[in-house]
Design a protein around this nucleic acid. Structure first.
Length: 321
DNA sequence: CGTTTTTGACCTGCGC
DNA sequence: GCGCAGGTCAAAAACG
């Protein structure tokens, strides 16, 4: 997959109803998604930023458009990309892939995250069950009705120049899978928040064009605070670690919590977007009407000196004349 | 001993 | 319908 614009999607639904206890309940304890709390930055992404598949396209997982993107990423710069709509690049080079943003594709992209809801249990490999009972499980037990479209979790992707794949963001993650990525020598790792009932996932992969760049994609929203042991520190360190040039010079950039950070620094963005997102509905992008406030926030960030090593064109796009 | 990672198999959706 | 690619599961291994 991953080669059509239709991968861009826009949605206002935050989570998939199917997650909730339907037939899957018994399957596994980590399959329930509680309704996340609205209001943080990621909510703003509902209206659409960049889809993971598009991310792949743009970042080199597919042949198209990758080189320009990477050519614009140098040094300790970072690119933060929202979901559904891609704008990225440096001050000069901005790669935009939002042409389809106004068009449609609300229900597109049903493919990703295909099985999160309840698939499962096709497992037989093993010995214990002797591979007999497996078929029944294999076929039954799908919480998903046929033909039913799956809502995707909102995603938030960003790139980080880092030597460590798994950036510490204050939450505890458990790796549940790893897959080779087509056209890339680097595998993609799948993590899930270890907190019970928190269905947040994240994918981490390294750009094959620039191995120093780690692409992290968050999916969903934490419905719990930071783990106590990390709390306080994590948020602060995350924000600071991400944006202080001095820290960025260090060889290990390993702390960043986008949700925390945006919640902290972009509160109004969050609020504004939330309102418009829900009212605008899927299929339309939300940020134009908030550009003013976003620009202001952007300015603020500049004042704080927080953007020196960061590229956030997608979050603060300049309206084209 | 509890938790996390590794890893191969399985499932699903999509394109051809 | 088939094959591919992405995503997930869960047993086993590794780790602390």
């Amino acid at each position: 997959m991953s080669s059509e614009p239709r991968d861009l999607y826009y949605r206002s639904q935050f989570y998939d109803d199917d997650q909730h206890g339907t037939g899957s309940s018994a399957a596994s304890q980590d399959h329930h998604y509680d309704p996340p709390q609205m209001g943080s930055f990621i909510d703003c992404l509902n209206g659409g930023f960049m889809d993971y598949n598009s991310l792949e396209k743009a970042f080199g997982m597919s042949p198209a458009t990758s080189s320009e993107v990477f050519s614009s990423i140098e040094g300790n710069q970072k690119v933060i990309i929202g979901e559904g709509d891609l704008h990225l690049g440096s001050d000069q080079n901005m790669v935009t892939q939002n042409s389809s943003i106004s068009s449609s594709s609300t229900e597109a992209g049903a493919e990703e995250d295909s099985c999160k809801s309840t698939k499962k249990d096709g497992q037989l490999k093993g010995s214990d069950d002797g591979g007999d009972g497996e078929n029944s499980k294999k076929t039954g037990n799908k919480g998903k009705k046929k033909g039913e479209k799956r809502e995707k979790e909102p995603r938030f992707a960003f790139m980080t120049k880092s030597e460590v794949d798994h950036l510490e963001d204050g939450y505890r993650w458990r790796k549940y899978g790893q897959k080779a990525v087509k056209n890339s020598p680097y595998p993609r790792s799948y993590y899930r928040c270890t907190t019970q009932k928190c269905g947040v996932k994240k994918r981490v992969e390294r750009s094959f064009q620039d191995p120093s760049i780690v692409i992290t994609t968050y999916e969903g929203q934490h419905n719990h605070p930071l783990p106590t042991t990390l709390r306080g520190n994590a948020a602060a360190v995350a924000a600071a670690g991400m944006f202080q040039p001095s820290m960025l010079m260090s060889t290990q950039m390993s702390s960043f919590n986008p949700q925390e950070w945006f919640g902290t620094y972009l509160p109004s963005l969050s609020n504004n977007q939330q309102g418009s997102t829900t009212t605008t509905g899927a299929g339309s992008h939300v940020y134009p009407q908030n550009m003013n406030s976003i620009d202001q926030q952007y300015q603020q960030l500049h004042d704080y000196g927080l953007l020196q090593d960061m590229i956030v064109p997608s979050m603060f796009p300049k309206r084209e004349p």
